[in-house]
Structures are given as C-alpha cells and as structure tokens.
C-alpha cells in the first residue's frame, strides 16, 4: 500500500473528498456550508482529472479541464455568495431549510 504511488491512490483521495462534499451538502443547513460542500466535490473531481492527466494518455487535457473547473468554481462561488446574500436579505437567515417556497 505504501509502495509506489499509483493512479488508484489519487483516485481514492478524490473519491473521499467527493463523498465528504456530498455529506457536507446534505447535512449543513447553513447556505455557506453547502457552498463549501460543493467546493469539496469539485476538488475531488479536479484531483481525478489531474491524476488521469498524469497517468493516462489524457495528457494536458485533464489539466486544462480542471483549470476550467477551478475558474467555474470561482464564478460559482461569486454567484452563490450573491444568492446567499439575497437569501439572507429575504429571510433574515442563512438557513436553507427556510427556503422551501418550492414545496409541492
């Protein structure tokens, strides 16, 4: 297990990060927390991309993809923050459980 660092190792780290992100999204009632969960998920994916870039013929494409992901994540963070602020303005709270207007 501690022998050579293989593709698998990175993939496992990515998987864990991803799962942590999912859990974070499902358990946090705080909007910011959910945003953090999203970041974790994205990072998990990024690790996988870079790992594939390094160990498979995917090559530079993986890196470029993760670059885009990072950029998009930043954008997403900005928008999400704006949403959160709006949400807060409207509900005087950041508790996402309050925002259930869409309940069927």
């Amino acid at each position: 297990m501690f022998s050579d660092i293989q593709l698998t190792n990175y993939l496992l780290v990515g998987a864990f990060l991803f799962v942590c992100g999912v859990v974070c999204m499902t358990t946090k009632r705080n909007g910011i927390g959910i945003l953090m969960g999203v970041e974790l998920v994205l990072n998990g994916a990024n690790i996988n991309f870079i790992a594939f870039s390094r160990y498979t013929p995917l090559g530079l494409d993986g890196q470029i993809f993760s670059l885009f992901v990072i950029v998009l994540a930043a954008a997403e963070a900005a928008v999400a923050l704006a949403i959160a602020l709006n949400f807060y303005n409207n509900h005087l709270s950041i508790d996402v459980d309050r925002g259930d207007e869409l309940q069927g």
């Binding site: 909007g31 602020l85 807060y88 950041i94």
Partner: peptide, 16 residues
C-alpha cells in the same frame, strides 16, 4: 481557491 474562493466564503459568513 485558497486565496480567492475561501476568502469569498468567509466574506459571506461575515455578511450573513
């Protein structure tokens, strides 16, 4: 991430 996004998040925390 570390320099931008997370700072942004913290801003969010503080604003809300």
């Amino acid at each position: 991430y570390v320099g931008g996004t997370v700072v942004l998040l913290i801003f969010g925390v503080m604003l809300t």
